[in-house]
Design a protein around this nucleic acid. Structure first.
Lengths: 225, 225
DNA sequence: AGTTGTCTTGAGCGATCACTCAATGCTGGT
DNA sequence: ACCAGCATTGAGTGATCGCTCAAGACAACT
């Protein structure tokens, strides 16, 4: 009542005999996500986290158990947001293929706004994970698999909508699409100039939209022409 | 004369009054390359290097100055080898476009042999480099730029050979090709099953080889059909 | 064999790593 | 006003980080 700025976790934590958490879990996780995304798991120290979350080590460990557990929470947050962005594009565009094409273009557009944008955090985590951090390796691959599934579902929807031929291999198309997306975001971090990045995303987006016209195509590797 | 196994550094170090280096610089750099490629810069400790190079810390620093300097030497070695592999394919195949297609296929083939293959070390270094390691960031981007230049030169050769139309944007094609290559190698590390990886490389390779037929194509983003 | 000078050695440097816990605040209930 | 009880604190844990250097080992010369 007194505070209109209440957040989600307040609803989840209403038991008596305890005061509200003085730290804002949502804000803290956002800060952790930003930091981990920017520096990566290995290069981020607890000192960095203390500064970013404005919490002392004891509080961090009381709230998140360990650096790895905190990272996994941040990674999940990252994944859910990407998933939501894609879902929004699906509702915004009637055509599934258009939604996929726009998803690609959106990354080139975002790069124009923020020249310091980073590659996909999930991919980066997968590349960085060592043997001793099996949880990171497993979880990042899990998210990648889920993302492939999302893409495949959209290609399936395109097929159901008549945008793709009945015999289209949607799993294969999904893998190809994800490869494009991964590479595009890496090129963004590489620092490709805006025009070149836009060209690249356009090449990829057109590759998707071109599928709609060619209903006679048999496979993605051998487009009939 | 007594030893047929003499190596490069022996030729570079023939001043009197010194014994031959008891460590094998070539072997040591190979070991460093393997280790750094596998674990990445941050996750590789001096202890790891001591074990892999079979050298004590003092020797490592006497020979290579610092962990970062050693990494840069390993990275250069990595780059030169990739460059050489590509050059070999160019001499093995009369058609530039075929060479590029085979380069892609070779990574899917290599994956079948070694299921633990890693993504491109240069890309990985670029993604990992933090602000404090500017040298790594600069150098990895430098290698990526050089690689783009290599690809462009091959596309130019294809144009000269009549495989591509006169108005083909070879710089743009090179960026698109490099994006494909990067993504393919990341998917390999992700652990994509051999058949799926082979499909992916085939999709990319066919995309290249399909250019040869379509001499009427105006731009890579809008293939005429 | 002795001399010379470089190379190797490995204990150990200060700094930083991820992390812990006894002490201290602060809040809600009475 | 007081108590009960959890959250926060921050100095400090042992381990490990990248790195150094005085001392010893050894080969190439005389």
């Amino acid at each position: 009542m007194t505070n209109a700025g209440q957040r989600e976790q307040d609803r989840l934590y209403v038991s008596p005999m305890t005061r509200a958490r003085p730290y804002d879990r949502d804000t803290a996780l956002d800060a952790a996500l930003t930091l981990f995304w920017k520096k990566g798991y290995h290069a981020t120290s607890l000192k960095d986290l203390e500064a970013a979350l404005q919490m002392k080590p004891g509080s961090i460990y009381a709230a998140f158990k360990s650096k790895e557990a905190l990272f996994l929470l941040a990674l999940d947050r990252y994944y859910q947001r990407n998933r939501q962005t894609l879902a929004d594009l699906q509702t915004a565009h009637a055509s599934p293929l258009t939604a996929l094409a726009e998803f690609l273009r959106s990354f080139a557009k975002a790069e124009a706004d923020d020249p310091k944008r980073r590659a996909c955090m999930v991919v980066r985590t997968m590349l960085d994970a060592t043997e001793g951090e099996a949880a990171l390796a497993v979880q990042s691959r899990h998210y990648l698999d889920k993302m492939t599934g999302e893409f495949r579902a959209i290609f399936d929807a395109a097929k159901a909508a008549g945008e793709l031929p009945e015999d289209a291999d949607t799993a294969r198309l999904a893998r190809r699409y994800q490869a494009n997306l991964t590479a595009l975001r890496i090129e963004a971090q590489r620092g490709l100039e805006a025009a070149a990045l836009s060209d690249l995303s356009e090449d990829m987006a057109c590759e998707i939209e071109a599928m709609r016209m060619k209903k006679g195509a048999e496979s993605p590797s051998a487009p009939a022409n």
